[in-house]
């Protein structure tokens, strides 16, 4: 601490030095507050039938915000976030149906549990120095193990999945409301806002800045005294907890969860695609990506259900959404390599 007294603080500083952290973080919180207010009123202006799309979009948003912490800011590309989404979804279902535990509490327990699972998986991968595509493949393999586990465990009703019993009346404690209640939209909106707030706080804090340094160059970061495993695992824990909350809410909204809805590869892609389309390693990218992917997936589903005459061959085709994601991803990677938000931000800075 001696150097503090040796160098008179504040006198030698170049006057142009911006205090960007606080300003930076504060500005992001303001954007978040404004966005939250605007989105809060969205159900009043949109037709009632749009609620399922909005909710699905918000769930994508939470998943992608979670994925982005680990994969975007942490540089650990996860191809297995279904594992954490699914653990959240099933923890909620099992605790509620077996023990009558409130979904709110189950959500927290699920998040803690997912964080633990994520830390264990990441520790094993990093301990054995898996990086890049090997890391991604290992996370994918773990998610597949969870899929098999859910399909074969009596506790979670094997392939049949778990239904959440419908309650006769509205209940905040049990997170059930009348079918078209706006609460089903406002709750995930607040959860998403909380996830973004956590991201902002993290990105501008010391652990978050360490995490980004480790992503840029782990060897240099370590040689500057940063315990890289510790900060990587902190990032993973946060990421998995957030994605788990999306899973818990999914169960509550659809009142059902099965192995495919929770742990299939499809779910992992749902966390990745919005972030990649919007901009990996940015605060707002995953949200913008979700706003594209959510309505798009609904549109595709509608076309497959009831195609216009010239697209009649698409009737009942499964996997069309995946094909469209693939095309979209190729277009984005070629023309907007940093995602929609990431690329725009870069152009504006120049």
């Amino acid at each position: 601490m001696s150097a503090t007294t040796e160098s008179p603080r504040g006198t030698k500083l170049p006057s142009a030095l911006p205090q960007r952290t606080h300003d930076g973080a504060r500005r992001q919180y303001i954007y978040l507050a404004v966005g939250l207010v605007v989105l809060f009123f969205l159900p009043f202006v949109l037709p009632e039938s749009s609620q399922p799309v909005l909710v699905r979009t918000l769930i994508y948003g939470i998943m992608a915000v979670g994925w982005n912490l680990m994969s975007g800011y942490g540089g650990m590309f996860s191809f297995g976030h279904a594992a954490f989404f699914g653990v959240g979804a099933y923890t909620d279902a099992v605790l509620l149906t077996n023990f009558g535990i409130s979904p709110w509490i189950a959500m927290i327990i699920g998040a803690v549990f997912s964080a633990g699972v994520g830390v264990l998986i990441a520790y094993l991968c990093l301990r054995y120095k898996l990086a890049g595509s090997y890391f991604a493949l290992a996370t994918f393999a773990f998610a597949q193990m969870f899929l098999l586990l859910a399909q074969n465990l009596e506790l979670v009703n094997r392939t049949e999945g778990i239904n959440i019993p419908l309650l006769p009346e509205d209940s905040w404690a049990m997170l059930q409301f009348g079918q078209d209640s706006f609460n089903y939209y406002w709750i995930p909106l607040l959860l998403l806002a909380a996830a973004v707030a956590v991201t902002i706080a993290f990105v501008y804090s010391r652990p978050g800045r360490y995490t980004q340094a480790i992503r840029d160059d782990p060897v240099a970061a370590e040689s500057l005294g940063i315990p890289i495993m510790k900060y990587r695992l902190i990032t993973v824990a946060l990421s998995c907890a957030i994605t788990s909350i999306a899973g818990s809410y999914y169960t509550q909204y659809y009142l059902f969860v099965g192995p495919e809805q929770a742990f299939s590869m499809h779910v992992s892609t749902d966390a990745i695609v919005p972030a990649v389309i919007g901009g990996v390693g940015t605060i707002w990218g995953p949200l913008i990506g979700a706003a594209v992917v959510g309505p798009l997936s609904e549109l595709v589903a509608a076309v497959v259900r009831n195609p216009p005459p010239f697209l009649e061959f698409l009737q009942g085709v499964s996997g069309l959404d995946v094909a469209i994601y693939a095309v979209l991803l190729i277009v984005i990677v070629v023309f907007l390599p940093k995602g929609i938000y990431g690329t725009i931000r870069e152009r504006l800075r120049k």
Binding site: L17, R206, R209, D216, D217, A220, A221, I226
Partner: peptide, 29 residues
């Protein structure tokens, strides 16, 4: 050389200063 390429020169160095200064503003000073 191994700079943290997503960061400014100031932030590259403040990552090291963080060891002594928890607050981002102080580490940047």
């Amino acid at each position: 050389m191994r700079p943290f390429e997503s960061m400014t020169v100031l932030d590259n160095v403040s990552i090291a200063s963080h060891r002594r200064f928890r607050s981002t503003a102080k580490s940047r000073d």
